[in-house]
Design a protein around this nucleic acid. Structure first.
Lengths: 184, 184
DNA sequence: GCGGTTGTTTCGCGGTCGTGAACCGTCCGG
DNA sequence: CCGGACGGTTCACGACCGCGAAACAACCGC
């Protein structure tokens, strides 16, 4: 769906034919800007450059090139210092926006999302969530679980993930910043 | 199993056919070990994984595969330089954070991690650890060993290592600072 | 009335935690 | 030099329980 056009302000990745555009490459490297080198079929692979660089051999399927770009962007966003992460926004009309996309949230999920977003990247306890979702008193115990589940499904297309921290609570994070263990 | 392991240089990079060996991939990721995925001609490119992973599409010229391995090894081996200074943080919600990554710790391991982190880089005795883990009295003798093992496994993806100092105790250190002898 | 929202019940997967036991390297006494 | 004690690692197992997820039944608004 979202091919690849980063409509937000992601780090801009430049495509460079190599070695023809070696000058461009060194210029981009000097500015610390990420880039992907496009090598001809017979060009030997370049020596490892800095960590803001990647390469592909052309001809290449467009999907593969886009994947390379995503991986490079992900490495920069996840590990580097200058994260230009797109901040998700929740407006008062029940719209959850991130990147150019958005979803509409029903009242309960809107309040839950507000609580999670206010503590983006940190743990929100179940009690705090219940308090946020039902200020006048919570319904049954499982209502929260179900609404978290539904909110999860609704936020999935926006690549936002609600992680559960067992016996502690929940944590909202961008899909690109994941826990270190190997779980989807 | 089928993963190819080039013997020789330090950062052991494993080749994994994907998605056939997805289990192997997640296992390696959980251990924090670098890997290169080998995709068939028609396999869609995987979503960005952690920064210890790369991929190529087979068939691939051996020189290109070796280049991918070199690039990955280069990224891991101090090429970037900005990630060695990351200091681990243990918040009160059971989250152990270092670099952009984190893992959630269950209660017992959370208390053990607290004790180890308070003495980061120095030895913590078994008794002190047991006291930290079970303030109201320790269960069987073996419980501590098992929990240290589990904590070890959980921190591995963050490249944090618990070294054992025989008959003295345990020592938590960043995975990049290892003892002079062979053992990891 | 219809589609979307909300809450409940129910089932069961999987994480947590303790125990027992097999295994291994090191140190020490005979 | 050998055998055993010791300290530590790792796996397997069972009990417990938090949470996920489906299925179902009101309920509300346009």
């Amino acid at each position: 769906m979202d091919g690849v056009e980063p409509d937000g302000d992601r780090p801009e990745i430049t495509l460079v034919r190599w070695p023809e555009q070696e000058a461009t490459r060194t210029a981009l490297r000097a500015e610390g800007r990420p880039r992907v080198l496009l090598l001809g079929p017979t060009t030997p692979a370049p020596d490892p450059g800095d960590d803001r660089e990647d390469w592909v051999r052309i001809p290449v399927a467009d999907a593969d090139l886009q994947a390379r770009i995503r991986w490079l962007a992900h490495r920069l966003g996840g590990g580097g210092g200058d994260r230009t992460a797109e901040r998700p926004v929740l407006d008062d009309d029940g719209l959850f926006r991130v990147g150019g996309e958005w979803v509409a949230l029903p009242p309960v999920e809107h309040r839950l999302a507000r609580a999670l977003l206010d503590r983006l990247g940190t743990v929100v306890s179940r009690d705090a969530l219940a308090e946020a979702g039902w200020p006048e008193g919570a319904p049954g115990r499982n209502a929260l679980d179900v609404h978290v589940l539904r909110l999860r499904r609704r936020l999935a297309p926006l690549r936002m993930t609600i992680h559960t921290v067992r016996s502690r609570g929940y944590l909202l994070a961008s899909g690109t910043s994941r826990p270190a263990d190997g779980r989807a």
